[in-house]
């Protein structure tokens, strides 16, 4: 089980993902303010971040590359997600570990998180 932070300005999506992940036994924190990402990660000792690409006024890729520049978060797993097409590569270039295209299947989301969490615990 992991401590997961969801950064999405759309509350319904954030809460929906939170519900699914909590059902799967994870500890989840949701924020709609991308500016607070670093604080939240440190405060809740976050192990994985789910980051939306298009957040009102902010580009998720900027948040992602900003995290990657910080020595403390350079290895933190970040899953980026978006409803926009053809942004997969842009997100990975910004440092995303994984990319999910909206709308995604619950199973896909769970599988992506499991593979990262289990992959890490194996290491």
């Amino acid at each position: 089980m992991a401590r997961i932070l969801i950064v999405d300005d759309d509350q319904t999506i954030g809460i929906m993902i939170q519900d699914i992940l909590e059902f799967k036994g994870h500890n989840v924190v949701v924020t709609q303010q991308p500016a607070t990402t670093k604080d939240q990660i440190l405060q809740h000792d976050i192990e994985l971040v789910l980051l939306d690409k298009l957040i009102s006024g902010v580009d998720g890729t900027d948040v992602c590359s900003e995290l990657r520049k910080d020595e403390r978060f350079k290895d933190l797993p970040i899953i980026m997600m978006s409803a926009l097409h053809n942004v997969d590569e842009i997100c990975r270039e910004a440092g995303a570990t994984e990319f999910l295209s909206k709308p995604f299947d619950m199973d896909t989301l769970i599988a992506a998180i499991d593979s990262i969490v289990n992959g890490e615990s194996q290491n």
């Binding site: 519900d19 059902f23 909206k102 619950m106």
Partner: peptide, 25 residues
């Protein structure tokens, strides 16, 4: 296009998520 792709997909994503979650439960 952006509107369609973002605004329309977002609620669908949410509905789908809850339906799948309920089904699973």
């Amino acid at each position: 296009l952006k509107l369609v792709s973002h605004e329309l997909k977002t609620p669908v994503t949410s509905i789908k998520g809850y339906v799948q979650l309920l089904l699973k439960m």
